[in-house]
């Protein structure tokens, strides 16, 4: 069952890639024209002719293209508030800390500081939300996305040949599959001392001290 699911998944993946390829290809122009919010005129352009050092020097010494400081949140006003910063409530903060298995703030001041840091960070990363990414396929990992690699990684009966050869069909009226039960030599992994690196242990157990949550 698991095997079948794997091959179905592989097939879905390749179909999804094909679908995504079409809009991607045609969207080369709009995708690059994020210039809606940036300053340049002509998106990705390579100067056709080699340029002289003087020209490049003049370009570099004239107008900088942008400022990283533009990512920083504006100076805070007296209330410690900034206008366009995403708001995170104290309740949300406590929820996020719980999700992260981190301790809650020790004081009101610490809580205020955490909220302010988080909202500064969110302002900093908020810039990329303005980019038009419609039709863009997310880049989740750097991996071979070519058709050849897709094919190499597709799980087929050939890939599973070794595993399948260890199965045999038994039974006459009720045929079923039985796995080859010859012992596999796993001594190199089974010699691992599971408790070897544990700081607190008792006998063959890890020790965790905690209090039961109150009912």
């Amino acid at each position: 069952m698991a095997l079948r699911r794997a091959s179905v998944y592989a097939r879905c993946m390749s179909r999804r890639l094909q679908c995504a390829a079409a809009p991607l290809h045609t969207s080369t122009i709009p995708a690059l024209s994020i210039s809606a919010i940036s300053t340049q005129d002509n998106a990705t352009s390579v100067s056709k002719k080699p340029m002289s050092l003087q020209d490049i020097e003049a370009l570099l010494n004239s107008e900088p293209t942008w400022s990283v400081e533009s990512l920083l949140p504006p100076e805070k006003n007296l209330n410690g508030d900034t206008s366009d910063v995403p708001r995170v409530s104290a309740k949300q903060l406590h929820h996020l800390l719980r999700l992260s298995a981190l301790p809650p703030p020790k004081s009101q001041e610490q809580e205020a500081k955490m909220l302010s840091t988080l909202s500064d960070q969110l302002h900093f990363v908020g810039r990329m939300q303005q980019v038009d990414t419609s039709g863009v396929k997310p880049l989740r990992a750097i991996r071979d996305e070519t058709a050849a690699a897709e094919q190499e990684q597709t799980i087929t009966l050939e890939t599973l040949k070794d595993a399948l050869s260890k199965e045999r069909v038994i039974g006459k009226h009720y045929k079923r599959i039985q796995r080859d039960t010859t012992a596999v030599d796993a001594s190199n992994v089974e010699t691992w001392d599971v408790l070897g690196s544990a700081e607190r242990k008792q006998g063959k157990y890890f020790v965790v001290e905690s209090e039961r949550p109150q009912e």
Binding site: L32, T44, S45, P50, S52
Partner: peptide, 8 residues
């Protein structure tokens, strides 16, 4: 030498 733009 060639100038290039990498807007992203």
């Amino acid at each position: 030498l060639h100038t290039v733009r990498l807007p992203a």
